[in-house]
Amino acid sequence: MTDVTRTAQAALLDTPPLAGGPSDGGGTGTKRRTASRRSGSRREAWVAFGFLSPWIVGLLLLTIGPMLYSLYLSFTRYDLLSPPVWAGFANYERMLAADPRFIDSVQVTFLYVVVSVPAVLVASLGVALILNQGMKALSVYRAAFYLPSLIGGSVAIALLWRQVFGQEGIFNQVLAVFGIQGQSWIGNPNSALYTLVVLNVWTFGSTMIIFLAGLRQVPRELHEAASVDGANVFRRFRHVTLPLLTPLIFFNILMTTINAFQAFTPAYVISNGSGGPLNSTLFYTLYLYQRGFANLEMGYASAMAWALVVVLGIFTALLFASARYWVHYGDER
């Protein structure tokens, strides 16, 4: 941790309690260890399982069963309407060796993840920081930025997106003002995916809300102490805000990436479920869905799903492994 942060924290801890009573709140990363805390006691374990009990019941009754069943299905041929037939690794072999559309869907999805995840994260963190500055009419702005997220998956969105990026859409009208000849952005295989990236960025509101909520937890005093110390805005952001925000940055990176890999609704709604034109918006889960529910190849769809689990599992594990180098939790001692 940097000097600025440490000074800031020291300053914070020196401030008198705010409303009477002993307080050691607000500080992070202090080294004090309380004798009364002993981890792993049997009593604590019982309490923990008590807290976890709804989740465990849900896991055993509703989640694990269907998950394992789908794992089993991935080794079968299953057309939904008649019982599954064991097929060994046939689905996995077909996926890797004999399905060009599978390869297309992997490429489309990777491109989408690589382009849209950083864009969403930067936009949401940026706007959250601006909105956290305490502007007037703040709640109106916040709501306004969040509004697109409310309608992002609705049936209406396909129609609205054509009004923006279609041949006759507003985007081309604006381009025409600058003398640029537009095109059908949705209908062109080279640009269709990017209209979905824009759609994803457009609905950055939920990621932004998480950042905003996290920013509210950064105690003001840290900033003030740091500015007394002579740190400018950028140094304060870099050394005070950013470290405290890392758990949520971590969360948002992980979740935005998982969501992008699993993206389904935008492409489904906008391409009428086809993934067109020319497979250019054939997201992985859209293709999986087509295989499972249109072609009635649920065995193959399950195999695709579990292949995705492996990829996402590796990504998640790597991200967690990296976390200890850059994520700072307030509960670390």
Partner: peptide
């Protein structure tokens, strides 16, 4: 669950200790 875990982990443990006292 994961979201809340991340939030709760930003809260200092000292608070728990004080309450325990």
């Amino acid at each position: 669950i994961f979201l809340m875990v991340q939030f709760m982990r930003t809260l200092p443990r000292e608070l728990d200790d004080a309450a325990r006292l």
